[in-house]
Nucleic acid binder design. Structure first.
Length: 916
RNA sequence: GCCCUGGUGGUGGAACUGGUAGACACGCAGGACUUAAAAUCCUGUGGGCCGCAACGCCCGUGCGGGUUCGAUUCCCGCCUGGGGCACCA
């Protein structure tokens, strides 16, 4: 009986479906385990071999945990709102819902091919009203909350109102406007509208005017992480700064918790690094410098208060509020011209050119420590949005300040003696200070605290922590997203009540932008008549909480019952790519914390362990066409002729050898192609690139599943290397895995003889092979080392094969071990052995150390670290006995001769080393 | 520029806490079976030296140092691939 994978796989996929084998209950006495994939955006291009890598890994882990007795939640769904579907709608007039559904069907078909154990009854789609109803609901939770800095947690806005009525805002600094202050009476004196406007400055989801990344070509606002070098991530269109009314999430209030929470979760160092860089916490001080001749002071933020005697000039951002009042008439024209120049420059130009520009205001501040007058400059390199929008420049210690000083011939004060060579700035903290009066002779890093104390004493400064992270822009001028559950009345945003949800996304006639940068919803008269918000939520809204919905997907009265979220808790294993490091992974952490603060869930980090799968790259193949001809030269024969290098479909190339007949049929242009061959072959050149349709280097999993079966495909993807590692795809090796599976099959069935397994008692040697394998597979699967697990299976089968073992008692156990990796195969043979029920419900074999006990060990014996002999010695031999045996050995004696043995190192069960 | 990662045979990779480097595969070479092919099986396969062969010896984990009885693994300095951040004061 031959291994007929296609009928076997079809059969078991049908059986699983029929028996609802992967349906998961929230009611179980077993321990829980939640294994999650980052759900995909269903693009029109379909899956290539890179996509399932993480899905296979998570599927193996889920199935393994299930066999180990866990109640495993392993769901899948679709992140279905987003730009591509809308772009497609604009170009082809197809409703995004329709194209999205088509893409989802196609995805599902491809996923089903591979035999995943998803509980499809729990599928979520972010674009379904039954789902986005709750996205809107969570938005309202954020809208109706503020962050209590004292308690370090989100609280209902009603509590804040109560505080205002009792004591004003003295103990609740306004995050949106820190200078705002009012007492009880003032609060009560405000109109309803004024009160609402103040509350907006506290809300966790709020609306405000702000500089945003505006992309004219896309007609929308983009988040910082959607802008790359001044161009939009999608489409590569220019992006500029523009002031618009936008919704934001006050994620900055969570900066510190997002940072400290990293210590409680298992993310890779690289991932934590990326997140903490993004949050960008810095410790420094704010210092007030009195402006000479004005009753005003300039507040700067610095991380280096120790350098205060080295300040040679101040620089403020062009937007700084103080500029107008302190610039003397003599400098007005110049300053205005410079500000106009800065405004004329796009973000893109600024980043691309990085020119040193600036302008002196004509005003001075006084250094509070030595009364020196310090000129105030304006320059675009100082950002209005960070710190106080003003810096004290210390050219001898900061590279940018140094270059600025050089460029404008500003004299430089050296406060670090020999550590500064006059040619470049030295940012050290280890130098001894000079020219610094009371700080002279003190090491810089020690001086920081001294200056901070002095500042506090003088009442002109204090320690200050700053974050680089900005509040997250949360609105898009697009159609295909969640509508905001907000009605505008007299300039006040009114939240819909819970029973008005969902606010359904209406149909539109055209998907183009509305008037004045508004979204397409602004084009609908009935929508405008209701005064609904015309923006929609960004792509990350739905994906920020989907892992909670899987726990309770059909709940119509709650986003997720507390009972369900208490049962499932954190995601135990989350698998996905690194590209979401500072987007999705940060936002979903924030949403989780907010929902936790408000008491809706019982944990404040969503993902306990994150595993990043590597990217599978494409291995492109190229042919060389002689310029102006239809003749193709084999790679090894390219001489002086001018040739054009062209991508060729990798599926027409075997290794490097081109199938010339297939090539001719590929495109009409090539029908009459002629070839210059080497050794009768056309050889292509190769390059590793990103896998993409346009490079003709994509490999479709469907083709491989058809040719080798899903089980072979699954195992091969894992065998390729560690999951975390990026690597180019190469189909060649799949044969080896396929051979292995067939070999395993032949332990059960012989092509001629049919059934060959037997019901005999296993020998000690066979039990040893089995238990060695159980131990290793378990260890490897637990640490996600799937590639080495597969090689362990190969070793096991090779050994059983060599031992001629066809014993059911052994084979059956190995089948259970391999179930997570090759589920269809295991299911088929499990039932062939006469077992009732599914192998996915079997009990995992239990390792018994007794079977693998060794009595002796083949010790490597080295002399001065070089292995010279292998000697078998009993494991319970004492060191003295070992010494005797080893030194008596002929091969060792030859090396030792009559030299004295200085030392003998004996590591039990490992090795022996003789030092002479 | 700063930060994080990786660099091991012809190839993918293994070696988990410092203890026989190259497991397991691919590829290649030779052989068996077959009319032939596919499939399957067997043998060899890091480089070099000496040899009829067995055996044996030397070198070898990006490069140069160091610690150690012993280093792919730890430390210092450099080269290099990949990723992230980038006027953040």
């Amino acid at each position: 009986m031959e291994y007929q994978f296609s009928s076997i796989e079809k059969k078991w996929q049908d059986q699983w479906k029929e028996k609802k084998a992967y349906q998961v209950s929230n009611d179980s006495s077993k321990p829980k385990c939640y294994v999650l994939d980052m759900f995909p955006y269903p693009s029109g291009a379909g899956l290539h071999v890179g996509h399932p890598l993480g899905y296979i890994a998570s599927d193996i882990y889920s199935r393994y945990k299930r066999l180990k007795g866990f109640n495993v939640l392993h769901p899948m769904g679709y992140d279905a709102f987003g730009l591509p579907a809308e772009q497609y709608a604009i170009e082809h007039g197809v409703h995004p819902l329709k194209s999205t559904h088509g893409n989802i069907d196609n995805f599902r078909k491809q996923l089903d091919n591979i035999g995943f154990s998803y509980d499809w009854d729990r599928e979520v789609r972010t674009c379904d009203a039954t789902y986005y109803k709750w996205t809107q609901w969570i938005f309202l939770q954020l809208f109706n909350s503020y962050y209590d800095r004292g308690a370090k947690q989100a609280k209902p806005i009603t509590e804040l109102i109560a505080v205002f009525e009792k004591e004003g805002n003295a103990n609740q600094v306004c995050p949106g406007d820190p200078k705002m202050q009012f007492d009880t009476a003032t609060w009560k004196g405000f109109t309803q509208k004024e009160q609402q406007s103040i509350l907006m400055h506290y809300r966790l989801a709020f609306c405000g005017y702000g500089e945003v990344n505006w992309c004219e070509a896309l007609g929308t606002v983009l988040a910082n992480d959607e802008v790359i070098n001044g161009l939009s991530e999608r489409g590569g269109h220019p992006v500029e700064k523009k002031k618009l009314r936008q919704w934001y999430l006050r994620i900055t209030e969570y900066a510190d918790r997002l940072l400290s929470g990293l210590d409680t979760i298992q993310f890779s160092e690289a991932m934590k690094e990326m997140q903490s860089n993004w949050i960008g916490k810095s410790y420094g001080a704010e210092i007030d410098f009195a402006v000479n001749g004005h009753d005003a002071s300039l507040r700067v933020y610095t991380t280096r208060p120790d350098t205060v005697f080295g300040v040679d000039f101040m620089v403020v951002a062009p937007e700084h509020a103080l500029i107008e009042s302190i610039t003397p008439d003599t400098h007005k024209a110049e300053v205005e011209a410079y500000i106009a120049y800065v405004k004329s420059r796009s973000e893109r130009e600024r980043i691309a050119e990085k020119k040193i520009t600036g302008c002196f205001t004509g005003a001075y501040v006084v250094n509070p420590f030595n009364q020196k007058l310090i000129p105030i400059w304006i320059s675009e390199y100082v950002l209005a949005g960070y710190g106080t929008g003003a810096i004290m420049a210390v050219p001898c210690g900061d590279d940018r300040d140094f270059k600025f000083a050089q460029h404008f011939n500003i004299p430089i004060t050296n406060i670090i003696g020999d550590a500064f060579d006059g040619k470049e700035a030295n940012p050290t903290k280890e130098a001894k200070l000079t020219n610094s009066e009371f700080l002279n002779g003190i090491i810089q890093k020690d001086a920081i605290a001294i200056v901070n104390e002095k500042l506090a004493e003088m009442g002109i400064g204090q320690r200050k922590v700053n974050y680089r992270m900005r509040d997250a822009a949360f609105s898009r001028q697009r159609y295909w997203g969640e509508p905001f559950p907000i009605k505008w009345m007299d300039g006040v945003a009114n939240p819909l009540s819970e029973n008005e949800l969902p606010l359904l996304l209406p149909d539109v006639d055209n998907y183009g932008p509305g008037p004045e940068g508004e979204g397409p919803l602004a084009n609908i008269a009935s929508w405008k008549a209701e005064n609904y918000e015309t923006n929609t939520m960004p792509g990350y809204a739905g994906s920020s909480w989907y892992f909670l919905r899987y726990m309770d997907p059909n709940n119509e009265s709650e986003f997720c019952s507390r009972k369900a979220s208490d049962y499932w808790g954190q995601v135990d294993l989350y698998i996905g790519g690194t590209e979401h490091a500072v987007g999705h992974l940060l936002y979903s952490r924030m949403w989780t914390k907010a929902l936790y603060d408000l008491g809706h869930i019982g944990f404040d980090e969503p993902f306990k362990k994150l595993l990043n799968q590597g990217m599978i790259q494409g291995s492109s193949r190229f042919v060389f066409r002689k310029r102006g001809t239809n003749t193709f030269v084999s790679a090894g024969l390219i001489g002086a002729d001018e040739v054009d290098q062209l991508h060729v479909d990798v599926n027409m190339v075997d290794g490097f050898e081109l199938d010339t007949e297939a090539f001719k049929k590929w495109k009409p242009d090539y029908a009459n192609a002629t070839f210059i061959l080497e050794d009768g072959k056309y050889i292509c050149s190769a390059e590793v690139e990103k896998m993409s349709k346009s490079k003709f280097n994509t490999v479709n999993p469907d083709d491989l599943v058809q040719k080798y079966g899903a089980d072979t495909f699954r195992m091969y993807e894992m065998f390729l290397g560690p999951v975390e590692q990026s690597k180019p795809w190469d189909t060649k090796g799949i044969e080896g895995v396929h051979r292995f599976i067939k070999k395993f099959w032949r332990l059960f069935f012989d092509e001629m003889k049919g059934k060959v397994w037997v019901d005999e008692m296993p020998t000690a040697e066979e039990l040893k092979i089995l238990h060695k394998t159980i131990k290793k597979i378990e260890e490897d699967t637990e640490r996600y080392s799937f590639n080495t697990a597969i090689s362990t299976f190969m070793i096991c089968i090779n050994e059983l094969y060599d031992a001629g073992c066809h014993k059911k008692a052994i084979l059956e156990q190995v089948l259970i071990l391999i179930t997570p990796y090759a589920p269809h195969f295991a299911e088929e043979l499990w039932s062939a052995l006469g077992n009732q029920g599914l192998i996915v419900d079997a009990n995992y074999p239990i390792f018994n150390a007794q079977y693998v006990l060794e009595t002796a060990k083949e010790y490597p014996v080295s002399i001065n670290g070089k292995v010279r002999a292998n000697i078998s010695i009993s494991l319970d031999a004492t060191e003295d006995q070992v010494r005797e045996i080893v030194l008596a050995n002929e091969a060792i004696q030859k090396w030792v001769e009559d030299k004295p043995v200085k030392k003998l190192i004996f590591v039990k069960g490992r090795m022996i080393n003789i030092v002479i």
